[in-house]
């Protein structure tokens, strides 16, 4: 009997020795999160990944599995982010013909807007005493998650804080675009879509597809171009600012 209880105690460490348990828990939380999201009628302010992550965090602390143990197992999922990032090249190529209609404006707007998206956050965080690690984590906040994780590998900072920042940015950007475009009298779906994609990455793009297919296409394009531009320039800019947090 004592032998059995000893085994019971070492059950989770044993199961966590392979990725199976981490991946299983992630999958369960994912499906539960998506189901709950649909039941809540797909609110903009609460994306499915947030619901799923909350469920997963709750499960981990209930089973007293440490985050480090979980993450070691889940590395198997994180690896697939590499090929998934490469896969983003296909929709980027497919949306590219939309650039023809407005190529001059897009060529000016994307670099400026993507730079300002990072610069505003960095200046505000710096003025309020944010550490180098916080600033490195916030800088790629308007970039779609897989590319942002790639940038994070280069400039440092906390992946988890970055992921939280992406969620907040996507939601706030979607709400701001709704509010400000009406105030400014902008009702061109192409402009609204571009703004959503440039500032609100994938969460903004989901919102854009709710508005119209045109807005969605331009949002995808804005998201892809912002991701590429930021990925190429931000690491250099951060080196220049000597902010690279290790």
């Amino acid at each position: 009997m004592t032998e059995f209880s000893a085994r019971l105690q070492s059950l989770f460490p044993h199961l966590l020795a392979t990725p199976a348990l981490s991946v299983l828990l992630t999958l369960i939380a994912y499906f539960a999160g998506v189901t709950i999201f649909r039941k809540l009628r797909q609110p903009v302010w609460c994306p499915p990944v947030l619901v799923a992550a909350l469920l997963l965090a709750g499960t981990l602390s209930l089973l007293s599995i440490s985050f480090d143990d979980y993450r070691r197992g889940a590395g198997w999922l994180s690896f697939l982010l590499g090929p998934a990032t490469v896969a983003l090249g296909v929709p980027l190529y497919q949306q590219f013909h939309h650039i023809r209609a407005l190529w001059r404006q897009i060529l000016v707007t994307v670099p400026l807007a993507a730079t300002m998206a990072a610069a505003y956050a960095l200046v505000i965080a710096w003025a309020l005493g944010g550490s180098n690690s916080v600033m490195a984590s916030l800088a790629p906040k308007s970039v779609t998650a897989p590319i942002a994780i790639g940038i994070n590998q280069q400039i440092g900072g906390s992946v988890s804080l970055l992921m939280g920042s992406l969620l907040v940015t996507g939601v706030v950007a979607s709400l701001c675009v709704d509010l400000l475009s009406r105030r400014l009298g902008i009702d061109d779906d192409r402009l609204i879509g571009l703004t959503l994609g440039i500032n609100g990455h994938a969460i903004g793009t989901v919102r854009a597809f709710e508005i119209s297919p045109t807005a969605g296409a331009f949002s995808s394009l804005g998201m892809g171009l912002t991701g590429v531009f930021t990925a190429v320039l931000l690491p250099f800019a951060m080196q220049l600012l000597a902010l690279t947090a290790t």
């Binding site: 981490s22 999958l27 992550a53 909350l54 997963l56 999922l77 998934a84 896969a87 929709p91 998650a145």
Partner: peptide
Amino acid sequence: SQHLISLLILLIMPGVVGVFF
């Protein structure tokens, strides 16, 4: 590509859940 992109939410979850830790 379409399949992998539709899996992106699942793939970023290990990073997102870290917010709570």
